[in-house]
Every structure is written in C-alpha cells, then in structure tokens.
C-alpha cells in the first residue's frame, strides 16, 4: 500500500469547477482592439485631432464613472473596461472638428445618464455612447452636423465637407463606392472607412465576441429595402452598395447594435432587433428629415429589447409549444 500523503487544505466550492477563460474585461478590450483599424483610419483621414478627441472622450468617461462610484461609495466599476469602449465609440461617431467642451459634455452624459443612473454596467437600457450622441444632437445641432473634409492623409485627394448621405439627400450628389470603402469622405471620425470597420468586425467575429445575427440581419434589411427602392426608381433612390458603405451603418451594426447589455439575448431576438433597426434606418434615410438614421434605429430597438427578450424566450425542453409543462 502506498505511503499516506499529507493532507493539504482542499477548497470546497460548488460545481462547475471549470470556467471558460473569457471574461467581461477581456470582451471589452477585444472591442477596443477591434476599433484600432477605425482609429488608425480616422488619424489618416482627419489628422492627429482624432486622437485628441478620443482621449478627451475616454478620459471624461473614466472620470465621470470614478466620481459616481465615489459618491455612492461603491467599488470602482472601471476595471470592467466598458467605459473605455463607450468613450472610444462616442468619439468615433461624432464629427472630427467638434469643440472639446462638447466632447466633454457628451462623454459625461454618456456615462452618467447612459449608464450610471441605471446602476452601472449591465443595468442600462440604451447604448451609452448613443445616449451621449443623442443628447448632443439635441443641444448642439449645428456643431453636430458640421462636417469637415478629410485632410490628414496627404496621398488621397480630399473631398467635399458634407457626408455622402447628406450630399445625396440634399444635393442629389453621389459619392463613389471606392471612396466610401476606403473612407476618404466626410463623416463622423470613425465611421467613414468601411474597410477599417470590417477588419475590426472580422476580429470580433473570430474572437466570438459578436455573432452574425444582429449585424447581418440589420445590414441585410437595409440592403433588401434600399435595393427594392433603387430597382423601382434608380433616379430617386441610391444603390445598395452606397447605402451599405455610407454613414454610420457599418460601425452601428457591428459595434453598437451588438452591445450585449442593450440587445436581446436569444438569437431569434437578435434577428428581430436587426430587422427593426434596419427598417428604421431605411425609413429615415429614404423618407425622413435627417440623412442618417442608424442612431435612432438602434436606440429605438434598445427600448424594445426587454420586450423582445420576453417574446423570444425559448421553449423549455420537455414543455409543450405554448410553454406549459407537458
């Protein structure tokens, strides 16, 4: 018989004893990494102010969260990384040459009214960055719609100041698909380069942070309806590639609509969310007063998310169709 070994202190804990390595901060920093191409593109097209804008938004967000946690005597929630994501996204969906004080207000509102008053990460209903942007849109409509030409990149010819969607809506002027793909067009700091956003989205997809359900269905919905209208009247309605590559659709669909906290939990619910958000984008872009509707589309579906979650609750194993135990 073997010699009896020592008796170490053994930990008692309830099962499961294995955990996946992925964690909330790991997910948040994966989103940050996925935004690196968009950040690089913004510096390329709009110069170093891009970095300044980002820094201001992130720093203000972090400070706001810190103040809230101190005031409530709660441990700081900063370690989860979500505030960095919100600050970064806010900077990327605002115009490049926006006064610093407006950035500060927007970022503070994102964190304070978008997240902290609900109780912090996980409890908010709306995407915090979009709450900040919607607030600024209401308070400072002019700076929020003042676009500048991309100037930072010396090799590419700069184009007009308005956004492609605005130019089409108000001046019936089309922007080339190639330009939209590379991103040397007017627009929010980080939304202009389709390529940069798609690169980041691919990373999130491979890293399994996002699933295809929301972005594919949302973009697909926009494609189907703008396609129908374009086919019916090509003179009045822009083509599908133009709609997909311009404005905030890609950054919105891949980085904001997919925000886990504010989107449905089931795949079925996520597809409902994608259809709804896509439809609102189409309605506003084609017939609304604004050139762009991604922000409203996502915020509106954020509000419906609790409802969608309830309506798409899966049928429990061993239950009848109606949801009663069989």
């Amino acid at each position: 018989m073997a010699v009896s070994s020592e008796n170490p202190t053994l930990e008692l804990a309830s099962s499961p004893h294995l955990r996946d390595r992925d964690s909330v901060p790991a997910i948040m920093y994966a989103v940050v990494i996925a935004l690196v191409p968009a950040v690089l593109a913004s510096v390329m097209f709009f110069g170093l102010t891009a970095l300044l804008n980002i820094l201001v938004c992130v720093a203000t967000g972090v400070a706001t969260e810190w103040v809230f946690c101190r005031a409530r005597n709660r441990p700081s929630g900063l370690r989860d990384g979500s505030t960095v994501v919100t600050g970064l996204l806010l900077a990327l969906v605002l115009p490049p040459r926006i006064p610093i004080q407006i950035l500060v207000v927007g970022s503070a509102v994102s964190i304070a009214l978008g997240k902290m008053i609900y109780g912090g990460l996980g409890s908010n209903i709306f995407n915090p960055a979009l709450i900040g942007r919607a607030f600024l849109m209401a308070c400072y409509p002019v700076p929020l719609t003042t676009w500048t030409k991309p100037t930072g990149f010396p090799g590419l010819a700069a184009v007009t100041g308005a956004t492609p969607l605005g130019m089409f809506k108000f001046e019936r002027q089309l922007t080339g698909i190639g330009q939209l793909f590379w991103g040397n067009v007017g627009g929010s700091l980080g939304e202009t380069s389709a390529l940069a956003i798609l690169l980041g989205a691919a990373y999130l997809f491979i890293r399994r942070v996002i699933s295809w359900h929301i972005p594919a269905v949302m973009i697909g919905t926009v494609a189907v309806f703008t396609g129908i209208m374009h086919a019916a009247n090509p003179g009045a309605y822009a083509s599908v590639p133009f709609h997909l590559l311009s404005g905030g659709l890609l950054i919105g669909a891949f980085f904001m609509a997919t925000d886990m906290v504010t989107s449905p939990t089931t795949h079925k619910g996520q597809m409902v969310f994608g259809i709804g958000a896509g439809l609102i984008v189409v309605l506003i872009r084609l017939w609304g007063g604004y050139p762009e509707g991604v922000m409203y589309g996502i915020l509106f579906m954020n509000a419906l998310t609790p409802l969608i979650n309830r309506a798409t609750r899966p049928r429990i194993y061993g239950y009848k169709k109606g949801g009663t135990p069989s």
Binding site: H17, L18, R19, D20, R21, S23, V24, P25, I27, G77, R79, D80, S82, G120, L121, G122, S123, M260, V261, T262, S263, P264, T265, T266, H267, Q270, R313, P314, R315, I316, Y317, G318
Partner: peptide, 26 residues
C-alpha cells in the same frame, strides 16, 4: 490555474448562458 478563479462582474446580457443551456432556460 485550471479553476480559472476570477472576479465577478455584473451580468452584461451576453446570452451565452441562454445559448448553452440544454434545457433552453434563461
């Protein structure tokens, strides 16, 4: 090392638990 003990965070509604549950619970 195998137990991957880690700090707890608030639920971020990622739905991974919903997708994993063999009984289709939430």
């Amino acid at each position: 090392d195998e137990l991957h003990a880690s700090a707890e965070y608030p639920c971020i509604g990622c739905g991974r638990c919903v997708q994993a549950c063999p009984m289709h619970l939430v």
